[in-house]
Design a protein around this nucleic acid. Structure first.
Lengths: 107, 107
DNA sequence: ATCGAAGTTTGACAGCGATCGAACTTCTGC
DNA sequence: GCAGAAGTTCGATCGCTGTCAAACTTCGAT
């Protein structure tokens, strides 16, 4: 595993790529969990119904789309939601997809 | 072809289905063209790089997701964007995906 | 009735993407 | 050093989806 995985710059964000990342329910769940937690989460800390190798695949897709930033802490790989950068490029998109909006309207 | 094709009710709108519909560039283009035109458009009136049978498939997907409403006028099948209903269920989603926001910010 | 225009239906195909298990790497703790 | 924990990589399925051509249906105009 590379010490410093590839992260796209904000200028390289692409709507098609981001959509293809977010259309998968597992990946959308990952983003939603990060958003709800408001904190970084290790790969193993998510509640997702797939094997480790599949999880690795999903995190890679999210990272390459620019949705998350990954960094190592010991043997754990932490995941951070790049929300501000996403909001800057695609305003309203994450709000519309993470069901935050519903919770916010409610209270 | 059925006289009255199946259209889901707003209460049946499903985010996963809508996303799967909008992740395809051709379908997103159809929605964008409808949105930009602000008027209904016949199937043959779109600028899309696919055959007629493929186009039929895309319109079906969009209709079953609730994104468009279809009705016949003679031999032409008209397509209407169900924007208000979509906005009601998924506020901000179409704005984020049809690049309207960019145009609106500009002027 | 006939012909053309506009879509639909059907069947087939190709490619992609999600999924898994197994083997491997790397770090932590003892 | 050794064992275990946390991920990654590799290879192989497998189902789904976008695509098209060909044949068909329906409507409008002549």
């Amino acid at each position: 595993m590379a010490r410093t995985p590839t992260h796209p710059d904000v200028s390289q964000f692409d709507l098609q790529t981001v959509l293809e990342a977010l259309v998968d329910p597992v990946r959308r769940s990952i983003v939603a969990q990060l958003d709800a937690a408001g904190a970084d989460i290790a790969c193993g800390g998510f509640d997702i119904p797939v094997s480790k190798s599949t999880a690795t695949h999903h995190f890679t897709v999210l990272r390459e789309a620019g949705l998350i930033r990954q960094y190592y802490v010991g043997t754990s790989r932490m995941n951070a939601l790049r929300r501000a950068e996403m909001d800057e490029t695609f305003p309203g998109l994450l709000d519309a997809l993470t069901a935050r909006r519903a919770a916010r309207r409610g209270g």
